[in-house]
Simulated scan of single mutants.
Amino acid sequence: MHHYGKGPLGPDVGTFARSFAAFGMGGPGPGVGPAGRARRGDIRPAVLRVLADQPMHGYQIIQEISARSGGTWNPSAGSVYPTLQLLADEGLVVAEETGGKRVFSLTAAGEAAVADLADEQAPWDVAAASPDLSGYAALRQAGGRLAAAVLQVGRSGDKNQIVSTIEILNAARKQVYTLLAQD
């Protein structure tokens, strides 16, 4: 059962997902930099290094960076695809249509750029080694898991399950605000 738009049960699932994205429940992983973001410029060497192993499409690049960082850095499509375009404009990567997807590979100039990065620590290693001193990583992960469960109810739940989920979420929100109000 799909619920699109605003109806008697409240905002659509997309609105819910965007609210979590605004809170930081997506994108680069925790502990990478201020507010869990990778340092500016880290996506470029990460993309080049990943493509040095094999040609990939954008989503594969995102997943590979996430895997190499142990899940602590999950770059967004909004950072990877513009980076790929810039690298293509600079002649470092080339895109080829394969199976309905744009697959990117390094050019000779791109391979030389990767060789220039050999002495630098890989960005995903920096991300994986960065401590999470605030507990923000666990909070983001818990929020992300909650969002996934709520989205599943929104996609396949019946009206009673949706209403019950709304009640659970409202109670949880009140508990969190009560926690924040404590000295």
Rank of each mutant, 00 (worst) to 15 (best):
2 H>L: 09
2 H>M: 15
2 H>P: 09
4 Y>D: 07
10 G>K: 09
11 P>C: 02
11 P>T: 03
11 P>Y: 01
15 T>C: 04
15 T>Y: 07
16 F>K: 06
18 R>W: 05
21 A>P: 00
24 G>L: 05
24 G>P: 01
26 G>N: 13
35 A>C: 06
39 R>S: 08
42 D>S: 11
42 D>T: 07
49 R>P: 09
50 V>A: 15
58 G>F: 01
60 Q>E: 15
61 I>R: 12
63 Q>H: 08
63 Q>R: 13
64 E>F: 00
65 I>R: 01
66 S>L: 07
68 R>G: 11
72 T>N: 14
81 Y>M: 11
84 L>R: 06
90 E>K: 14
93 V>D: 07
94 V>W: 02
97 E>I: 01
99 G>A: 08
101 K>Y: 09
101 K>H: 12
101 K>L: 10
102 R>I: 02
106 L>K: 03
109 A>I: 00
115 A>V: 11
117 L>N: 09
119 D>R: 06
125 D>Y: 01
132 D>S: 06
135 G>H: 08
135 G>F: 07
135 G>L: 05
142 A>P: 00
143 G>L: 06
149 A>N: 12
153 V>I: 11
156 S>P: 00
157 G>A: 08
158 D>S: 06
158 D>N: 15
161 Q>P: 01
166 I>L: 13
167 E>V: 05
168 I>L: 14
168 I>H: 11
171 A>Q: 10
171 A>Y: 02
182 Q>E: 15
183 D>E: 12
